[in-house]
Design a protein around this nucleic acid. Structure first.
Lengths: 126, 126
DNA sequence: AAGATGCTTGCATGATGGTGCAAGAGTGCA
DNA sequence: TGCACTCTTGCACCATCATGCAAGCATCTT
């Protein structure tokens, strides 16, 4: 709740090239990130920030769900601490922005790690 | 807990080609999948199944964490209902297998949907 | 048939987490 | 300085969930 650092590790795979070792998987698995995405209202918030794009104030974001604004504020903090959102204070307002690239990169890196561990078997994997 | 169907929708993006619409994002966001991955022991189970590869019995999988075997059995059911694992009963044993390809495809599809909504801005996204 | 093995399920318990309300902190305006 | 506005935080409540133990179910062995 208090940690500011980005929980999604910077895409070192890009620096190291496309090679992904098998043992990387467990370290890649960000339980906190998944936990952040595992709540319906937080998913709605993420969807809102993705579709509207750019920065949005807490009040604007809160329109996407029926819960109290304080609840939305807390959800935003969770997403921010997970490294998915970035907060920027301007005057009284706090504008949140979805960190699209880091999140998308993380998802792809995780997919790569998975398949690096277990090469897909076309005949059995559905 | 009881549902057998795969919660990860079959990769229709592959059928429709690389085009991903923005409004797809919310439907792509599988809260149940993320919830399944948001528990440390389940993440360990997934890591074990990924690194060892192939099918593993419940007893074998249970060695990866310190909790009771019944707990592991329940975690496996959650992962199976989320569409990540496949169970196959053989005699007394039940062998679980990680569905690598569907999971990896889902993660990449989600990444594509995200960037389809919000084209990455190189100057601001870290 | 009887017992052993492998796994699942019912039940109770403790921990975690989402929620609303009220209060607080920070900022802008008159 | 006082007030309105925006957001965060403390607190209490309730729901969900992870866990261990015991019992149950299915299968294999003798």
């Amino acid at each position: 709740m208090m940690v500011q650092e980005c929980k999604i590790s910077p895409s070192d795979s890009a620096a190291d090239g496309p090679r992904v070792a098998c043992c990387d998987l467990e370290s890649e698995l960000s339980v906190e990130l998944f936990k952040a995405l595992s709540e319906p209202n937080r998913a709605a918030i993420l969807g809102t920030l993705a579709t509207t794009g750019g920065q949005r104030t807490v009040g604007e974001i809160a329109e996407c769900c029926t819960v109290d604004l304080s609840v939305v504020s807390r959800h935003l903090a969770v997403l921010r601490d997970a490294g998915i959102l970035e907060a920027q204070k301007r005057g009284r307002e706090v504008r949140y922005r979805l960190l699209v690239k880091p999140l998308a990169d993380y998802l792809r890196r995780l997919a790569d790690s998975l398949e690096a561990c277990c090469p897909p078997r076309e005949e059995s994997d559905t």
